[in-house]
Design a binder for these strands. Structure first.
Length: 497
RNA sequence: GCGGCUGUGGUCUAGACUGGUUAGGACCCAAGCUUCCCAAGCUUGUGGCCCGGGUUCAAAUCCCGGCAGCCGCACCA
């Protein structure tokens, strides 16, 4: 089996993640998280919130519906731009994007054209199927958004949102007032988004329903730049790995050495990098930022880097998150379409705030954790940071007799109040270690015959399989220190020698 | 969405070409025995031919349709 198959098998067998509706044969583009996956997902969200909301006093979380009325997505440009005009070859059945066919022929952009215009232009140019030369059918709209009829008459139209960002923009005005007009203002949200992908593949990387965690930061560049500059100064020696659009390889560089990007952008780039190395526990080498070319990036993004992680299961660097400078495009659009003033008063008159967006694919982040953590050599184990892992500690009896199971159960119950704990007694001790290695249980506490004598237990570290012996009374304190990284397992080991 | 390949207990698979005993194995899981630290062993047990239709005395096996997965193309503002 390939690495990917091994990991998928583990995820199904042990309760992380699998295809949705599987007893009915499944449906492409939908996945369910089991008891472990769901816990990992929750933990990731919690750590994400802890990290990004604490970047500034004025960064906050909001919660919004998955459904937008038609006008929101019309204003944002999704009704026009998120759809493509497709034409189908009547002879061989292949389908193509109409605007692309025209662009190839004329060399000019045809993205602005609607269904009728594209149909007319194709006839005018006498285009035929590039595959077989057959004639084209009439063009049809294909929109990546799931449309909805709202209410009993079905006359009101809406969509499942294709991104969470718009939910935040339409709440800017309310929150700006509620938060007493302080700027910069950061509004984060974690929620689901929906895209009717033509052919979803690559597991959780292209789903029809997926989760996003986004931090939208509103600011007026010429006024608030200073604030970010100060923060940037503090981290400008931070090293990151960046692949610019004109480079073949990512290079290691200090933030301060990147001269053509504004401090507010570099500051957040540095902070995102830090999230991946410090919170998600990835090594510097496994993460990079890649700048998107003009062709790749959306027209409203002035600066766009994707954060990519080198994944074994997907064969290389994959987009996990993004940092987008969206300028004032979004608020301007909504101001115009809603006839609501979204500019803010400044000493230099009213200004429409700009947005820098920190955007994270939650499912992709979770999969990246599983991919990078999955070790399948001599021993199979899952290396998840202790703050993120679904099981922080497991408690076992060494053997199933002489009161050890009961003792271990007592210890488990006391630990379960403070940690994500687990208890089991079936099989042999080795088997229990192996089972817990596979799902990423960080520490295994074993009750043995010494425990019955002197009330001490062993703690085993998943990474090294080494053990330390500690008093039961100190267990909670020691585990807490290990989890909070106040003291490392190695330090405890040294103390014992 | 197009083309190719594939679909057997929870997982991985044998069987299919050449239709015919009770669909076999390994691992996992559960219960028990055993066991003083890294998937030991023994006993017992649960559980399966992707779905629907057709051909046939008889279908996991052949045919048609659907669904899903993988690969290629296309798509991924």
């Amino acid at each position: 089996m390939t690495e990917k198959e091994e990991l998928e098998s583990m995820c199904k067998r042990r309760g992380y993640i699998w295809q949705s509706s599987e007893i009915y044969g499944g449906e492409a583009g939908f996945y369910d998280y089991g008891h472990l996956g769901s816990q990992l997902l929750d933990n990731w969200k919690r750590e994400w919130k802890n990290y990004f909301l604490s970047l500034d006093d004025n960064y906050h979380l909001i919660q919004t519906p998955n459904i937008h009325p038609y006008r929101v997505l019309d204003a944002s440009g999704h009704v026009d731009h998120f759809s493509d005009v497709m034409v189908r070859c009547e002879q061989c059945g292949s389908s193509f994007r109409g605007d692309h066919l025209i662009e190839e022929e004329t060399g000019e952009s045809a993205e602005w054209m609607d269904k009728e215009e594209i149909g007319g232009k194709i006839k005018e140019l006498g285009l035929s199927c590039p595959d077989c030369g057959g004639p084209f059918s009439d063009p049809e709209d294909f929109n990546m958004m799931f449309g909805l009829d709202l209410g009993p008459t079905g006359e009101k139209k809406g969509f499942l949102r294709p991104e969470t960002a718009q939910s935040v923009y339409i709440n800017f005005r309310r929150e700006f007032r509620a938060l007493r007009k302080k700027m910069p203002l950061g509004l984060a949200t974690i929620g689901s988004a929906f895209r009717n992908e033509i052919s979803p593949r690559q597991g959780v990387f292209r789903m029809r329903e997926f989760r996003q965690a986004e931090m939208q930061i509103f600011f007026v560049p010429e006024i608030h730049e200073e604030i970010f500059e100060e923060r940037y100064e503090m981290i400008k020696d931070t090293k990151v790995k960046v692949k610019r659009v004109d480079q073949d390889e990512a290079v290691e560089i200090k933030l301060g050495e990147i001269e053509d990007l504004p401090p507010f952008y570099l500051y957040h780039l540095g902070k995102m990098y830090e999230f991946y190395t410090k919170v998600m526990g990835l090594s510097f080498e496994e993460v990079r930022f890649r700048e998107l070319s003009e062709d790749e990036k959306a027209f409203y993004n002035k600066i766009h880097f994707d954060l990519e992680i080198d994944l074994d299961t997907l064969g290389g660097w994959e987009e996990i998150s993004g940092l987008h400078y969206r300028s004032d495009y979004d608020l301007k659009q909504h101001q115009e379409e809603s006839n609501t003033k979204l500019s803010i008063p400044t000493e230099e008159g009213r200004k429409i705030p700009h947005v820098i967006e920190l955007s994270f694919g939650v499912d992709r982040n979770v999969w990246a954790l599983l991919d990078r953590g999955f070790k399948n050599g001599d021993r199979t184990w899952l290396d998840l940071p202790v703050k993120l892992t679904p099981r922080q500690v497991a408690v076992f009896p060494l053997v199933r007799k002489d009161g050890l199971p009961e003792k271990s159960r007592d210890i488990y119950e006391s630990l379960n109040r403070d940690f994500r704990a687990h208890w089991e007694k079936s099989g042999s001790i080795g088997k229990r270690y192996a089972r817990n290695d596979e799902v990423g249980t960080r520490y295994c506490v074993t009750v043995d015959y010494d425990t019955m004598e002197d009330d001490s237990v062993t703690i085993r570290d998943i990474e090294t399989t080494e053990q330390i012996r500690v008093p039961v009374n100190d267990l909670t304190m020691i585990l807490r220190r290990l989890i909070e990284r106040e003291k490392s397992f190695e330090q405890y080991m040294e103390e014992q020698d």
